[in-house]
Computed example of a mutant assay.
Amino acid sequence: MTGEGSYERDRTYLTTRITADGRDGYPVEPGRYRLIIARACPWANRSAIVRRLMGLEDVLSLGIAGPLHDERSWSFHLDPGGLDPVLGIERLQEAYFRREPGYPSGITVPAIVDVPTGQVVTNDFERITLDLGSQWAAHQRDGAPDLYPERWRDEIDDVADKVYRDVNNGVYRCGFASNQQAYDKAYRSLWERMDWLEERLGGRRYLVGDTITEADVRLFPTLVRFDAVYHGHFKCNRQRLTELPALWAYTRDLFQTPGFGDTIDFAQIKAHYYVVHHDINPTGIVPLGPDTRAWLSPHGREELGGRPFGDGTPPPPPPPPERVPAISRSQ
C-alpha cells in the first residue's frame, strides 16, 4: 500500500527458471518438479490452464492448496491429514523457507517446487507459463498449441501489459484501496480498459490473431471471477460481466474450451475471497450466487471464425484427481 492509499502489488519473485538446458541449475526433468496452485487464485489459474493445454500432467505433478490461508501462507487443508501428499508439508511457506530461510516476500502461488530438495524453484507467474509453453516442449502432448507465436509476440506483450495493469491487478487496486481517491482512480482505469476490451472483442474472437494466445490465458482468470467476486466484493460494480455482450460471450467461449473451464472451481474461488479478506468482509459470509448455469449457454463466437488451438488440438479431459465440480444444467 502506498502513502496515497493505492494498492501496489509486491512483484519480488524467485526468478530462477526451469529450462531445457538447465542454465539456472534446474533442467526440465519429468517427475522432478511439482506445480503448486490454488483453485481460488487467478495468477495460479494461468499455470493450471497452460499445463492442461500443453498436456504436461504426466511430467509435472500438481499440488492444490485449499482456498483458505492465514498470515503463514497457503495450506493444504483439503488434502488427507492436511499435508501435500508428495511434499509432505502443511503450508507452502515450508517450501519457500527451504529455499531461503525466513523468505521475506509473499508466499505466493503458482510456485514450482523441486521435489528432491523440497525447495521452491520459482514463483514468477509470468515466466512460468511462457516456459511451460517453450522449455518443456520435448514433453508436451502431440497437438499442443503455440500460445506465444513469434509473429504475434509484440502485440501479445502489449495487450497483456495493458490487461495486467488495468484489469488483472486493477480489480485488486479497487478492492484494496484505502481511500476514496485511490479507489476512484483504480475504478476509472479498470473500466476504461474493460470498455477497450469490449470494443476490441466485438469483431474478433480472440485478443491477438485468430487463435488462443498467452493474452487470452492472462485475461480469462480475471473475467471468470468477475461477477462472483470482483463486482461486489472489490467494488468493481459499474456493470456485471453478463451485461457486457462481447466480453461475456468471449469468456463463455473460453470457459467452454477444454483447458479453461475445467480448471475453475467457483466454490473455492468464493470461499477464498469472502472468508480470507476479513477487512473487506468481516462476517465471512460467502454468497450463494451467482447462478453458474449461464456459463454453459451458447456464446455464438464461432461466427467470428478463428481456430482455438491453431494447428493443434484440444487437450483430453483432466485426470480424475484433478477434475473440478461440473456445473449442473438443472442447478
Rank of each mutant, 00 (worst) to 15 (best):
Y96H: 04
P110A: 10
V86P: 10
T108E: 03
Q93R: 15
N123K: 01
G102V: 11
R98P: 06
I107R: 10
P110V: 14
E100Y: 15
P116Q: 06
T117M: 07
Q119D: 09
D84N: 04
G118N: 07
P110L: 08
G102N: 06
Q119N: 12
V120N: 00
P116D: 05
Y96K: 02
V86L: 08
Y96M: 04
Y96Q: 03
E90K: 06
I89A: 00
P101M: 07
D114T: 11
P85E: 12
L92H: 01
G102T: 10
T122E: 01
N123L: 00
T108C: 02
S105D: 15
F97H: 03
G88C: 13
P110R: 09
T117Q: 14
V115H: 07
L92Y: 04
P104D: 05
E90L: 11
V86D: 11
G102H: 09
Y103A: 01
V115P: 01
D84E: 05
E94W: 10
A95M: 03
L87K: 05
E94G: 00
R99K: 15
G106E: 15
P110K: 10
T117A: 09
N123G: 02
P116L: 06
L92C: 02
I107H: 08
G118V: 10
Q93K: 13
V120D: 00
A111F: 10
I89V: 12
T122I: 04
P110C: 13
R91A: 04
E100G: 13
P110M: 07
Y103G: 03
V120P: 00
I107G: 07
T108H: 10
P116M: 02
P116F: 05
T117D: 09
E94A: 04
D114N: 06
G106C: 15
V120G: 01
V115G: 02
Q93N: 09
Y103P: 04
I112N: 09
L87G: 06
V120I: 06
Y96G: 00
R99N: 11
E90Y: 12
R99F: 12
A111C: 09
P104A: 08
I89S: 02
Q119H: 15
E100S: 14
S105E: 15
G88P: 14
E94D: 05
I107V: 12
R91F: 11
V86K: 08
V121T: 02
P110S: 11
R98L: 06
G106A: 15
V109L: 08
P101S: 04
V109K: 01
I89Y: 02
Y96W: 02
N123S: 01
R91T: 09
A95D: 00
Q93D: 09
T117R: 11
P101H: 10
P104H: 12
V115R: 03
P104S: 12
E100H: 15
V109W: 10
R99G: 09
P101L: 08
L92T: 04
E94R: 05
E100T: 15
P104F: 14
V113S: 02
